[in-house]
Nucleic acid binder design. Structure first.
Length: 499
RNA sequence: GGUCGGGUGGCCGAGUGGCUAGGCAGAGGUCUGCAAAACCUCGUACAGCGGUUCGAAUCCGCUUCCGACCUCCA
């Protein structure tokens, strides 16, 4: 229950998880910038935090999960004077900026739903919080940790670091080195030093997205929206802040600075960072063109895959790696995941169909199975170790299948052990990992009647087999196979499944 | 160049100072009319070179290769 340990990027250590308020967790995760279609790398991050969110809820916490949508403030190119990404895209597609935002936000939500990612408790947008952001800029100015230059406002990292000595703590950077490192290509005369960053930018005439402020007609700096919105919905101090590894610097580092600059306290207790999805050994990234969209993966229309893979196979594939490790996407790995997914889902399907078992005494095998079940949750308590938990689940699969086959050692599993297995598989696979049984194809009327038809077919085939009429029995099997229905002959009759 | 993280059996991926995950593929077997599925068994892997240790894939050093961040990025 409270045995959860999490790896904190701030301290670089695994720590016992203790929320600020007993039983309640506030979690903020950086969402997408909606200026183009999400790719699988983005999706991985949101699935990782979905599992974390689900596990926290499973563990009995009441979680307020805030995941924002950034629809302004991302700049293009090397310079802070660059065009806003959304505005840029709007020009390109000949759309109103808000149309761009809506279009890609819709696409994002659709993807999240396809991958069974739970919606957050609050999904705030940057453009909906301009006032809060302006107020935060003012607070930082009041605290003398920012300065105004030609209508733009810059965060004064030197002054901030003198006061708090903490700039760079999260990303492991030393502020002095940041100066010497920063390339001199910036025509950033407005900044006092290169490590400073804009929290409010004056917009020029051509800019499409701009708002009134005490300093100029302009727009907020990129990092500001997360600071403002996390404060608004979770308070100045909250429990977990998450995001992709690539956001650690400068985004999260600057976020911390802004929060401290405004309220004098560190925002999140625990910083969790998920690692990147790789393809061909390299980070999946739009700018490199090293990407694959989910649609391409579903349809198989990509040079990277030989066939299509379903959303749940992909989700299962991701569960096989720890969220803090990179994972390499490949055709071979996906097809291995597909088989593994099928195996565990089918074992579960049988498991859940077991009605009542004659109660027997608890024997050695029961004890062993129950220990393994307990270990599944221990693994998840250890920084959400899904691959280890999954390994334990797979140790239980042969137990279930052996029970099904009536194997001597397993046929007398007790009622309570079966119940524990059912609970464990259902909780871990569906509630925590967020998988779905794709072979079940819904509990609709069609599948129910199909099952009725299939029972008849299987019965007829069974008769044919009893009469050693192999021609008929094989014809049934082979014809069904062409329709992607697979017949499996077991000890106590046959079963079927959709391929 | 700076900072950080990695190199694990055919592939993907866990992991701990000694009890050597798991999935997929492969081999053999059981079952089966055949096939599939299922079940059982198997490979003794940890980049290289040194060192610490009774003992290291796991700790330290060096070498090498790869990646991430340092500029927008989940």
């Amino acid at each position: 229950m409270s045995g959860l340990k999490v790896y904190n990027s701030l301290t670089k250590k695994k720590e016992k998880f203790t929320p600020l308020q007993k039983g309640l967790v506030g979690m903020y995760v950086c969402g997408p910038t909606v200026y183009s279609d999400v790719h699988l790398g983005n999706i991985r991050t949101f699935i990782s935090f979905d599992v974390i969110y689900r596990y926290l809820k499973y563990s009995g916490y009441k979680v307020r999960y805030v995941r924002n949508i950034t629809d302004v403030g991302h700049l293009v190119g090397d310079l802070d004077t660059g065009e806003d990404k959304i505005a840029e895209r709007a020009k390109l597609e000949n759309l109103e900026p808000m149309e761009v935002v809506q279009k890609y936000a819709n696409g994002f939500h659709e993807m999240m739903s396809i991958f069974n990612v739970s919606p957050p408790s609050i999904e705030p947008r940057a453009t909906g919080h301009i006032i809060e952001q302006i107020e935060m800029v003012q607070k930082i100015l009041d605290n003398k940790l920012a300065y105004v230059k030609n209508g733009s406002v810059y965060f004064d990292t030197i002054k901030f670091n003198k006061k708090y000595k903490s700039y760079g703590q999260l990303s492991g950077r030393v502020i002095e080195e940041l100066f010497s490192e920063t390339r001199e290509l910036k025509n950033q005369n407005e900044k006092k030093n290169p490590a400073d960053f804009a929290i409010w930018m004056k917009a020029d005439e051509r800019h499409l997205m701009k708002w009134n402020s005490p300093w100029s007609v302009g727009f907020p700096g990129w990092h500001l929206e997360c600071s403002a919105m996390s404060t608004k919905y979770l308070g100045e101090k909250f429990d977990i802040h998450g995001g992709g590894n690539d956001l650690k610097f400068p985004h999260h580092e600057n976020e911390v600075a802004q929060n401290m600059g405004a309220c004098g306290c560190t925002p999140a207790q625990y910083w969790l960072h998920s690692n990147m999805l790789l393809m061909n050994g390299k980070k999946m990234s739009k700018s490199d063109g090293n990407t694959i969209t989910a649609e391409q993966l579903f349809s198989g229309e990509s040079e990277h895959v030989s066939k299509g893979y379903s959303p749940m196979v992909i989700r299962f594939f991701l569960m096989q790696a720890h969220y803090r490790s990179t994972i390499d996407l490949s055709d071979e790995a996906l097809s291995a995941a597909e088989k593994g997914y099928r195996k565990v889902i089918e074992a579960n399907r049988f498991l859940q169909s077991i009605k009542a078992v004659t109660e027997t005494t608890i024997n050695e095998i029961d004890t062993k199975v129950n220990q393994t079940i307990a270990s599944v949750y221990d693994e998840l308590d250890d920084d959400f170790n899904t691959p280890k938990a999954l390994a334990r689940i797979f140790e239980l699969v042969p137990v279930i299948n052996s029970f099904k086959d009536g194997k001597e050692e397993f046929k007398n599993l007790s009622q309570s052990t079966i119940a524990n297995l059912q609970k464990c598989f259902s909780e871990v696979l569906f509630d925590i990992f967020g998988l779905q049984d794709e072979y079940e194809s819904g509990s609709n009327n069609l599948s129910a009647s199909l099952d009725g038809v299939m029972q008849l077919v299987l019965e007829l085939r069974q008769q044919a087999r009893a009469n050693k009429d192999w021609a008929t029995s094989d014809k049934i099997r082979d014809t069904l196979a062409k329709e992607n229905i697979v017949i499996k002959d077991g000890k106590d009759g046959s079963s079927w499944s959709l391929n």
